[in-house]
Design a protein around this nucleic acid. Structure first.
Length: 342
RNA sequence: GCAGAGGUGGCGGAGCGGUCAAACGCAUCGGACUGUAAAUCCGACUCCUUCGGGAUACACUGGUUCAAAUCCAGUCCUCUGCA
């Protein structure tokens, strides 16, 4: 078996999102200090800025960031869903991918299964993701079926392109993972997973929207997928999640995770601690001289009080966002460390 | 002292007879955020309420009017010119 795949499957990973080639507010060094071992970056964002050609000339995102850990690149499928399907950006999703206009420059872009792979190759990630047709979880069956069929077709095209154009894993050393769709139709989830296994990938990622209307993790959907996936493959639960949701997903058998909640909540004032969520901007924190989490040894908790973080974050000081991001990420990485089999 | 302008909710600032408990900003107080268009977004923000409403409110005191933050008079303040 491929060594990289084997190594990845030794651990559980929480991967902060370096969407545009940076985890907001943290330097690469600070990122390392939180215990972070893997990052996710985004094809669609990087396709627009700075563009694959520039990234390639600069030696790839890892070199640009000075990042020595693992780098996963998301295919842009989720952005097609969240920006183009939902009409926040002008564009169309069609059989061949998505064609859209960047909102600031107005340039027209095409994201196809092949161009997604090409861009990810130029990004220089270690683990690639096939372009998928991501939709909402409460989707009617015919639409869900459509998204599954398209996702399967695109996955196959990605794989063929990855192999023909680049020589596949053998030549590149990179892994190719795919995304399982099917919304909340368990039979479709199963079908999609099995068809993808038939094509053959290094990893099978749970895709789509992972929270139902009530904010509950779609465990039955996740189960329907994971039951069909071999443990020697990557099982990435895309967008999962809150600490308790990660724990549930780990029980099910997933081993890679990412969510924007960690860093976004840090910036917005919701901090994760050993005693639950702390809303650091709440007035109750104004005179609290305890660290954010007394059981945490991160730079934020070692050196500063809740009251100080409260004040700085309310004032919009960037330093506060740096510190809260460091804290939340450290909390998550400690959580993952506790799960890793020794 | 004379001549102008003005005094509105915690602050800035609209409104200039009824549809005003008073736009909009800011501040404050909550909440949300799940493969990041997010240092964002949503709500509350006079008091009481059985959530239908009710009671006080636009410097102060009177007045005109069915009705006044809005019109009139006086008082007290503030700012800008000229002395």
């Amino acid at each position: 078996m491929n060594k990289l795949l084997k190594d990845i499957n030794k651990e559980y990973y929480f991967m902060p999102d370096a969407t545009r080639g940076a985890v907001r507010y943290l330097t690469t060094r600070q990122l390392e200090e939180t215990g972070t071992k893997a990052l996710v970056t985004n094809t669609l964002h990087l396709l627009i800025h700075p563009g694959p050609e520039i990234i390639e000339k600069l030696g790839g995102i890892k070199k640009m960031m000075g990042w020595k850990g693992l780098l996963v690149s998301d295919s842009g499928g989720f952005q097609v869903f969240s920006l183009i399907h939902s009409k926040k950006w002008k564009g169309k999703v069609h059989e061949n991918g998505a064609t859209f206009k960047s909102p600031k420059q107005g340039d027209i872009y095409d994201l196809t299964p092949e161009s997604s792979i090409d861009t990810q190759m130029k990004i220089g990630s270690d683990v690639l993701v096939t372009l998928d047709d991501c939709r909402d979880t409460g989707l009617e069956k015919d639409k869900a079926k459509e998204s599954v069929e398209r996702t399967l077709k695109w996955a196959l095209r990605c794989k063929k392109h990855f192999e023909r154009e680049y020589g596949g894993t053998k030549e590149t050393g990179k892994l190719l993972t795919c995304v399982v769709q099917g919304a909340n139709h368990l039979d479709l989830r199963e079908y999609c997973a099995n068809e993808l296994v038939e094509i053959g990938f290094d990893g099978y990622n749970f895709g789509g929207y992972l929270i139902d209307k009530d904010g509950e993790l779609v465990e039955d959907e996740m189960e329907a997928v994971i039951q069909n996936i071999s443990k020697d493959k990557i099982r990435y639960a895309m967008g999962v999640g809150k600490p308790e949701d990660i724990l549930r997903s780990v029980e099910m058998g997933y081993n890679l995770f990412d969510t924007v909640l960690v860093t976004r909540n840090a910036r917005h004032g919701t901090l994760y601690t050993s005693e639950g969520e702390v809303k650091i901007k709440n007035s109750a924190m104004a005179l609290d001289q305890n660290p954010v989490d007394r059981n945490c040894n991160c730079e934020c908790c070692r050196n500063y009080t809740r009251a100080y973080i409260h004040h700085m974050l309310k004032m919009g000081e960037a330093t506060a966002m740096v510190l809260t991001t460091i804290h939340n990420l450290t909390f998550y990485q400690n959580l993952m460390r506790g799960l890793t089999r020794v």
